[in-house]
Structure formats: structure tokens, C-alpha cells
Design a protein around this nucleic acid. Structure first.
Lengths: 140, 140, 140, 140
DNA sequence: TTTT
DNA sequence: TTTT
């Protein structure tokens, strides 16, 4: 069992690359999640990193921008690599199974597309406030 | 372990009553959550019932209306009672530990309060997109 | 977003039926989950109902018995039907995506199979403490 | 919303220190969680780090050992620090709200205590398969 | 590297 | 630094 649910705002636009063999999209971003404020305490925020694969990653590239609110269901994945100094770096990120777009704002849209509208969302088969996962999208 | 996370829209205004001894608020509502649409399938929706206690219930009464989008973290609670026909009715509901208001819309507001605005939210100590839980609110 | 995680013990042996057309297995059971005990309070327990489909349901039939400890990841599903008195009954159950067997005990085994052992588990391709979900098992 | 549920086995004994001012216990460990095995794929495992505070940390020190199975409910916390080379290191860990001991094994027990038994668990006020969180334990 |  |  390894189950994560997050609701937070993108700290920057998603970064998307494509795998060389299958040209599968891989989107990465981090989300800001404010911790519950203790009385008399100051605001604190966590910034978990998120990875999304496949068609969902393509939708992230099209629709998500810095500041957008998203709901994420996924799992924690750990890894490691050796950096240029030769020491081991440990990584922890959230692999998303499902990304829901929780505000369809009209600001911060990329220039190559018009603002999201109800009709457009339906054209794309994207129900309001929900984004289905397709089996063929899951590469792991 | 008994952990539930929901994101959905209120199917009606919250119903709020107060316990007789301590005058603690108890808010009840249900949320609509669309299931992921299977290709070729038709839309289906679940309607789990939600209960909230204490100060959070008071905030639900003030700020939540039918159609609002909320994020809920809580647990499943089961119970039973005997109805007027004398047969046992089994109940299942989600007891919320945390309710987050995910859209601060300007429609459907109750008449006795003005539309939520940034400054007002800060007046109330309610951070945008998050609603802290206070220890003294938890009655269970 | 509709995400549930439970850890609890089966209140009875799973009930399994098979759909008429595709002969897909459908397993049903409920689990007992003790609530955190409040100091000075008495023990209270929730009994959510769980449904499992496909190959996972078959594994539940083979390996799960009353009293076994399971971890469940799934979602809340609501429904309704009309009973023989003609009144509408509302239902809430947890549809499991993943069922993990958390104790491989040697008691309460069905007579038609020997006690679970390490070698047998490996024969069945079931890793210890984890039960993979196969895509073809998911009927919704 | 920031919600994590894990079930996994300790990769080593918990490390416990006490804060200097309040002498609050802080336990740290990581858990091994096998990923669902893809057909034809090889086993892969994640190793998220976990932190526990207060009385629950003390219980971890007493009862948990390398190899034990635990259920954890908590949240993702990120941070950073500067290492001796002067570069920034980013950290991600799971802050546990609740730790459940899922196997009360008789091996790997520390010498200063006998094997856990039903009566002893009740003596300690620890219900079987569940470990309550006390309000005064939560330091954040 | 941090969002409203 | 990795568990059964």
C-alpha cells in the first residue's frame, strides 16, 4: 500500500519531455501545499514533486500553468542517482495516477490556445472537475 | 486505519443542527463525485454522505452552498437504527476531519452575508484554499 | 477524487458469486476497524462493506477468511434499490482496487486447501504482503 | 490536503532522539514497499522516510524493529538544508499522524523487554492492531 | 526551484 | 542506508 492524495497549486509551469523510444510524454512539476496554521505560528508550505506519464502528462502540458489548483492521487516513489561530485543523491517524488484540474482559470494560459471554456472542455472529452485515467496511459 | 479523501460538489445546502448539551454544531451534506468515464460508457456519480462537527461545521454553514466544490479528509463511520417499520437500517457516512473550500464562488451565497472576498477571508483567519482544523473542534 | 484506505479484519468469510455472462467473480465482505479509543471512552468499531471484482475476488475467495487482516485501497460507491416493502434503500460500499493480505495465518483455512506457506505463495505468483492488481481484473 | 497512507516493513531499527528543550521523542525510520509487479518485470521497491513525534515515537522505539510491518497515515513534508559541500539538499519525508503495528512478532525484540503478548498490550493500553494518537502527542 |  |  502506497497511496498519496494532494491538493495544491503548481509552483511553475509543468516541464514536459518525451521518451526517445515511444515518445511518451512525461510531465514534472511541484505543488505548494500550505500546512494548517498553528495559532500564533507562521505559514509553512510543503513543495512535493510530482511526475505524470502518458496522455495525462499531455493534458498537464496543455492545461496546467503555474498557480493552477490540482488534485493528485498517486504513490510515493524513491530513487537515487550519482551527481557530478560523485555523491549519491536520494530522490522522493509522487507518481500521479490521476490529476484533476480544480480551477479552470482564464489567466496564465499559454498563447497557443484560447481560454478554457465549457464547450471546449466537452470537445476534448474532459468532464468538468475530473480527468479520467486511461489504461493505456499507465507506463509502470 | 480508516482514511477517506473526497473531492466533490455539494448536492444541497448543508443541514446544521446543534447538540442540546454543548451546543456543538453538526453539519451534514452529501457530495457528488463523477466516476471516471469508461470509453463508451455513460456518466455515473456517487453521492457519499458527510458529517462535520464543531467549528468546522459552523464554517460549512456559513460558507458552503449547493454546488460548491470541497475537498474532504476523514474516515468511514457505520451505524444502524431501527425505523418506524421496525426494521434495522444500516448507515455509512464519512466523518470529516478536514473540509477545504476549493472554490470561493460568488453565486449561491446566503443573503445574510456578502460575497466572500480576499480581505474578508483574511479577517476570518481562513487562508485561501485551506481550512485549518483546530484541536478543540474534534469531538470524537 | 474518491479514495479510501482501510485496514481491518474480515467479520465473516467472503461471499463470492459469479456474473452470469462473463463468469467474473464478485467477492463481498465487511471489515471491522476499531476507532481510536478516547481516554475514558469505550471501544467502538466501524464495519464498512467491501466489494472486489475479477481475479482479486478469486484470490479473496481462496485466501481470505473471517478474522484475517487486510489492507484495502479503493473508492466509495453509492447506490439504491427498492426493497420488498417498496421503500428505497440507500447503499454505500467500498469498491476495492487493491486488497493486500496482511497476515498469512494458519487458522481458519478452508478445508480444500493446505495452510499458506512461503513456497505456495510463490507458486501462485503472490508476493508476500502484496497482491498485484491486473488490468484485466478491473471491470469498472 | 496532503494525505499519505503506507504499509511497509522497516528497513532498520528506528532511530530515536529527544528534543533538548521539551525532551520530546522523535523517531525516524524508512519502510520498504514493493511496487506491484508488472508481468515479466522485476521487483522494485520504494523506501520512503518516516518521522514520528511524541508518545507515538516512544512506542516506535519500544515496539518496532527492522522487518516489522507497519501502517502509516500522515503527510508529505519537504525541507532543505545546506550540506558541508555548501550545496542545497532537498528533503522529502512522511510525517506520521498514526502508526499501526501490523504484526506483533516474537523475533527481533530488544533484550530489555519480553515478547509482546495480548495481556501486555492491554497493560500498555495499546489495542490490538491499532495505536491511538493522543492530542498531546502532536507537535506540529 | 517555490503557489493563492 | 534498504524490508519479507
Amino acid at each position: 500500500m502506497n497511496n498519496v492524495v494532494l491538493i495544491g497549486r503548481l509552483t511553475r509551469d509543468p516541464e514536459v519531455r518525451y521518451t526517445s523510444e515511444t515518445q511518451m510524454a512525461v510531465a514534472r512539476f511541484s505543488v505548494a501545499i500550505d500546512r494548517p496554521v498553528r495559532s500564533g505560528g507562521e505559514k509553512q508550505t510543503d513543495f512535493p514533486n510530482v511526475v505524470v506519464f502518458g496522455k495525462q502528462a499531455e493534458n498537464c502540458e496543455r492545461f496546467l500553468r503555474k498557480g493552477r489548483l490540482v488534485g493528485i492521487q498517486g504513490r510515493i516513489q524513491t530513487g537515487r542517482y550519482t551527481n557530478k561530485n560523485g555523491d549519491t543523491v536520494y530522490t522522493t517524488e509522487v507518481v500521479a495516477n490521476n490529476v484533476e484540474f480544480l480551477d479552470w482559470g482564464d489567466r496564465n494560459e499559454r498563447s497557443e490556445r484560447p481560454a478554457a471554456q465549457s464547450s471546449q472542455k466537452e470537445d476534448m472529452g474532459i468532464p468538468d472537475g475530473f480527468q479520467a485515467i486511461e489504461d493505456e496511459d499507465i507506463p509502470f
